[in-house]
Amino acid sequence: MSNETHTRPILVPVDFSSHSEAALLWAVELAKCHHSPLLILHVVHDPGTMQGYYSRALKKKQLHRIEDGAADMLTDFLRTLGKQHPELGKPNDLESLLVKGLPSSRILEIANQRSASMIVMGSKGLTGLKHLLIGSVAERVMHRARIPVTIVKSAPPQTGTDSP
């Protein structure tokens, strides 16, 4: 593996979910080990299956443009993650990017445009009818990407019990 590979960014698409958080935490550690920059991407998309995603998440704020609200959410997501996990320190090189469009297509476009070395992303892991109807962004990216894709899943939240 050449040194050039290490200067190419690791692309981490986020949707502010616990799965995205887990993927970003994993990618930060990977970037530190490989001395790679991180490119954190959020694709602004409010599909018919999730109408009002941004307006519900930002109900206390007055929205002028959906992109402005999404940018605020991205900043808050990264700030909160840094506060909750100070042991991670600051990655060598971190850039965040907000784009509009269809998530799987835009993720692949940005990976290509920025010559990403790999994509690390979370997955909600939809199954059954929901998966058949709307598919999975992570699955579409994984099948169409020309670079390695790592899918990270967070542990399911505990439901008030101390036993596993």
Rank of each mutant, 00 (worst) to 15 (best):
M73W: 00
L39A: 11
K59H: 11
Y53I: 13
L63E: 00
A22K: 10
E29H: 13
V44S: 05
D46K: 10
H42R: 05
L25D: 04
E67M: 04
Y54S: 09
S36N: 12
T75C: 13
L41S: 08
L38E: 05
H64M: 04
A57N: 01
K61S: 11
Q62V: 11
G48M: 06
L78M: 10
R65V: 04
G52H: 04
S55C: 01
V28C: 11
K60I: 01
D68C: 02
I66P: 07
Y54E: 06
K60P: 00
R65N: 12
S36G: 10
D46N: 15
D76V: 14
S36Q: 12
G48Q: 07
D72Y: 14
D46F: 09
T75G: 13
K61I: 09
Y54W: 14
K61F: 03
K61Y: 08
K60M: 05
H64P: 00
K61E: 15
L41M: 09
L74K: 05
L30M: 12
F77N: 00
P37K: 13
W26H: 15
R79S: 07
I40C: 13
A57T: 01
A71V: 14
L58M: 13
D68N: 09
A31T: 00
M50K: 09
D68A: 03
S36C: 07
K32Y: 02
V43H: 00
H42I: 10
M73V: 06
L63Q: 06
T75N: 15
L30P: 01
E29W: 12
Y53W: 09
D46T: 14
L41H: 14
W26L: 14
L25V: 11
Q62C: 08
M50G: 04
P47T: 03
L38K: 09
G69L: 01
K59W: 02
D72L: 11
P47R: 06
L63G: 00
Y54K: 02
W26C: 14
H42C: 05
L78D: 04
G52L: 06
K59G: 00
L38Q: 00
A70P: 10
L30H: 15
A70E: 13
A22E: 06
S55A: 13
L58N: 08
G69S: 07
L41V: 09
Y53F: 15
Q62G: 07
A22V: 01
A31W: 03
T80K: 06
L58F: 02
A57K: 01
H42M: 09
A31V: 00
V43N: 04
V28S: 06
R65G: 06
R79C: 08
Y53E: 10
V43W: 01
L58G: 01
L39E: 15
I40Q: 05
M50L: 12
L39W: 11
L74V: 12
R65I: 10
S55G: 00
D72E: 09
H64R: 11
H42E: 04
H64C: 05
A71K: 14
K59C: 03
H42D: 01
M50Q: 10
W26G: 09
L74Q: 11
K59A: 09
Y53A: 14
R79D: 12
G52N: 06
L41W: 12
E29D: 15
Y54R: 03
A23K: 04
L39C: 10
T49G: 14
R56H: 13
L30I: 01
T49S: 15
H35R: 14
